[in-house]
Structures are given as C-alpha cells and as structure tokens.
Amino acid sequence: MDKHSLQQQVLDRLAEDLLRVETAARVAHETATHEENIAENKYDTLGLEAAYLATGQARRAEAIRQAISRWRQFRPGVYDAGKGIQVGALVTLIDVDDKQQRLFIGPDGGSMQVTSDGLLVQVVSSEAPLCRAMLGKAEGDEVSLQIAATRQQFEVLSVE
C-alpha cells in the first residue's frame, strides 16, 4: 500500500471537512448577527445560540487547520523492525475472531477511513489508545487493550 496516497486522502478529507465547518461557521455567524435575530426579551435566545455555535465552529475549523498543517509536514517513513511500530506505520492486526483490520498511524486528525488497493484502512492518531498499545511492537507481537470491562487482544500480522 502506498502511504503517500493514504496521506493525500487524509489531506483531501481534512480539506473537505474544513470547507464544511467554515461554511457552517459563516452561516452561524450571519444568523447571530442578523438584525432579525436581535433579542426582544430574555427568552429570545436565537442570536445568542447562533453566536455560541459560530464560536464552536470557528474553534473546530482552527483544529482542522492545525491537523492539515501536521499532515502536510508528516513524512511516513519505511518501517524499521529495530524500532518497532512508530508513527507512519501501516499495520495489519488480527483479533481472536480472525478479523483483520488495517491501521495507518498518523500525527493527528485520525478517526477516518480511507482506501488503498481496494482495502479499507482506518487512520488513527498516535494518541489513540490502540496506537499507544502498538508503539514499539513488531510483527508477531501481541497487542492488548483494555476498554471499560473488556480486554481486546490482537496480533500484529504485518507492518509496513
């Protein structure tokens, strides 16, 4: 799988998300500042609610801009078995039910799915609990993750 293609897909998706969030922030700001939405009494809160929404959307847009910046600077390297799994690795895991999943470890803005060679790849942030459990592991190693009362077990099938 081509890591640079995966990286470009992440950047494209983040750019789409940024456009949507900026549009939503603009609409919320226009709603908040529109003359028809000036509060007539203390129960008339549409303008205030729109202002809160615009602020939240603006913060989200800034977070996406920062994620885009980190992904642009990101250079996924070649897997080094001596270091084990690191940020930039493309990992295939298998669970106890023989279900496989492919993970691309990135710097930020994870929690999205992209495709490569017709296969689904989950993009995860280096801060995700599963990623932290994988760091330093190698092919054949076990990865264990406790989520609430459930312990999940995986085996690292391959790393690129």
Rank of each mutant, 00 (worst) to 15 (best):
D2L: 06
K3W: 02
K3A: 03
S5K: 12
Q8L: 15
V10I: 15
D12Y: 10
L18T: 08
A25G: 15
V27P: 02
V27C: 04
A28Y: 06
A28N: 08
H29C: 07
H29E: 09
H34C: 03
E35R: 13
E36N: 15
E36R: 15
N37P: 14
N37W: 14
K42V: 11
Y43G: 07
Y43V: 02
L46F: 15
G47F: 12
E49R: 09
A51V: 12
A54Q: 08
T55Q: 11
G56R: 05
Q57F: 12
R59K: 14
E62I: 06
A63W: 04
I64D: 07
I64C: 14
A67Q: 14
R70A: 14
G77S: 08
D80N: 12
A81W: 06
G88H: 05
D95R: 00
V96K: 13
D98C: 06
F104G: 01
I105S: 01
I105L: 05
I105D: 00
P107L: 11
D108K: 10
G110A: 12
S111D: 12
M112H: 02
Q113F: 04
S116P: 03
G118W: 01
G118Y: 03
L119A: 07
Q122R: 09
V124Q: 01
V124H: 00
A128P: 03
R132F: 09
L135M: 11
G136Y: 03
A138G: 02
G140L: 07
G140K: 08
G140D: 01
E142R: 15
E142W: 08
S144R: 12
A149K: 15
A149E: 15
T150K: 12
L157H: 02
L157A: 02
S158R: 10
V159P: 03
E160V: 06
E160D: 08
